[in-house]
Computed example of a mutant assay.
Amino acid sequence: MTRFVVTGTDTGIGKTIFSAALAQATGTPYWKPIQSGLEEETDSETVARLVGVAIHPEAYRLVTPASPHRAAEIDGVNIDIEMLTPPPGNLIVEGAGGALVPVTRTTLYADLFAKWQTPVIVCARTALGTINHSLLTIEALKSRGVPIHGLAFLGDAVEDSEATIAQLGGVRRLGRLPVIAPLTSETLAEAFKANFDLADFQ
């Protein structure tokens, strides 16, 4: 079964593009549990535009572009953690922002990941600061007993940073998705195939 959670070390680093690439390569449905901010293209809409996989509807769609806990408060929505149960079967789940983003005032995404016990792929930038952010993310997940499948780097190659994070974090490197321009279904598929081994996700 192909079933993974995709989280990251920060917001806006390319988790959605990696999630789309992985979903496309494996033919796996995609699910974003909570979408915050609806004025621009949502993550589910981005994945749907780029790749032809099934998209599960979000459990919550929040208008305010903020952390889910705050967006829900501003929008007057009560997030029920029990509603955040992943659909059965093959699935790529994308979290919001980083692993310690609050879902509610008492629950972080990492807490959900621990509850689900689904292997997590940590997406990390290769830019300056990534060693600290990545190791903190890995430590936070491990401390909660979250199974980590591996690291997916995003951006230009920085060999020392990538190797250092994998070694110190005790997590394997899955590959690195470079900046893709123009970004289309075809170029995304080519980049994933060139930089990742599909067998690592099966």
Rank of each mutant, 00 (worst) to 15 (best):
V122Y: 04
P86M: 06
N132Q: 04
G129C: 08
W31T: 11
G169R: 02
L136T: 07
Q24H: 11
G27M: 10
A191T: 12
I180W: 10
V77Q: 08
I131D: 05
M83S: 15
A157R: 14
T16D: 05
L100I: 15
Q202N: 15
A54I: 03
V5Q: 10
Y60M: 13
F4Y: 15
A59D: 05
I180A: 07
E159H: 14
D111Y: 06
A189E: 01
L50H: 14
L141V: 01
L91I: 13
R144K: 14
G170P: 03
A99T: 02
L174W: 08
R173F: 05
A54M: 07
L91R: 13
C123W: 00
F192W: 15
E159I: 14
H133K: 00
G169K: 04
I165M: 11
R173G: 07
A114I: 02
P86N: 06
P57R: 05
L128E: 02
F113H: 01
A140L: 03
G170T: 08
A48N: 12
T126D: 07
R70L: 15
N132W: 09
V47T: 09
V63C: 10
T118R: 01
A191F: 13
A23D: 03
R105S: 11
I13G: 03
P86Y: 06
E45V: 02
S19V: 08
G14S: 09
G52A: 14
T126E: 05
P68S: 03
D197C: 06
V53N: 05
N195M: 09
S161D: 04
T42M: 12
R173Q: 15
D111F: 09
D197L: 05
G12Q: 15
F201P: 09
L22V: 01
T42Q: 11
P119N: 00
A71V: 12
L100W: 06
A23I: 01
I121N: 03
C123E: 00
G155C: 02
T137P: 07
P102H: 02
E73H: 04
C123A: 01
